[in-house]
Each structure stands twice: as structure tokens, then as C-alpha cells.
Amino acid sequence: MHSNSSDGHYLDAGVTPVKLVVMGPFAVGKTTFVGAVSEIKPASTEERLTQAGELVDDLRGLEDKDTTTVAHDFGRLTLTEDIVLYLFGTPGQPRFAAMIEDLMYGALGGVVLVDTRRVAESWDAMERLEEAGLAYVLAVNEFPNSPKYTEAELRTALDLDPWTPLVMCDVRKRESAKAVLIALVSHLLSRSSLEPAS
């Protein structure tokens, strides 16, 4: 990656951050998607309890509970010496609405992940992006036992705008996830050609 630090994670001072949001319902594969393209590899976190210090003896047993982590995923992809892509996976639950708004703010665009077994759960993310006026790409994460639909069936059911790309993907695959990003940026490019640059 383009980094001028022996440490490997520092960026050049002249870098421009670009922000994308990855949205969709619970367990649709957002974390996996972010992890697949991020140069910061997510690993499993077994406990966060220790934030308050380890409770030995008397408070034993507490370790088994509370293993929640931060509610948003976070990944980074250094594209060039002066462009770095930040991917934020937003939580799916409505109670995180305020955080989603916050994460969407300033984003270039979004990826909405869909599980065809439960497409309705992705509607909320689509609505939010549409209301925010953010361009997005719809990415169908194909699970082995997912029912197969034609693109036309999906577009109709999702009431998708004709200009919004719909792509199939396997979020575990870097190339596949990358292709989703390529579709999104291509879509942004196509829009930019039509919008005034003011």
C-alpha cells in the first residue's frame, strides 16, 4: 500500500479521505464485505469486558457475558498516494438510526447488501440513502441456499430506480467485493457526467 511509514499504517500528509457506507440488515455480510476489501484485517474480538479492568476472583463469571463491540465496522483501502477509501459498515437496527445518519454524512455513496431470503430487511437502508440523496449500488450477497431471482424480478420487487446498479456478489471474496465498489464508482461517474459540477 501507499504508506510512507515503516509502521505500515500511516498515510501521507497530503491524502484525501473518501468515505463510503456499507448498509443492510443484520447478518447480511457487511462486516465480511468491509473486511474483504480492507487493508486492515478484521479479526475476532473475544472480549471487551476488560475495558473496565479484569475482575479477578470476586467478580469471576462476568467474562462470559457482554461481548459487544463497536456498532460500526470500519475498513480502509489506500488507493493512491493521495486517495484513501474509508468504508463504514453501518448497523442494521433502527435503534442505531442516529449513528447511521452520522456515518452517511459526508459519504461519497453507499453499498446496500441484500439477502434474497429477506429482501424486505434491506428496504430501510435504501430509503435512508434515497432520502439523503446518496447514490448507491445494490449488492445481492448470494448464500448457497438463497432462492434465485432474475434481475428483473429483483428490480421490480425492490422498486429499484433504473439507474441504480444491481450486482451479485460473494462478500467473502476480495475480487467480488471490489467489483461492487467498481460498480458504485462507475455509477457515480455516470451521474457526475450529468450533474453540474457546482
Binding site: 462486516t31 471487551r48 463497536v70 460500526h72 437496527q93
Partner: peptide, 10 residues
Amino acid sequence: AAMGVSALTE
């Protein structure tokens, strides 16, 4: 890594 792992366990 913790930043990259979702908390959505429900």
C-alpha cells in the same frame, strides 16, 4: 480489529 467487527449479535 475490534473496530472492524460488528456488534450486531442479536
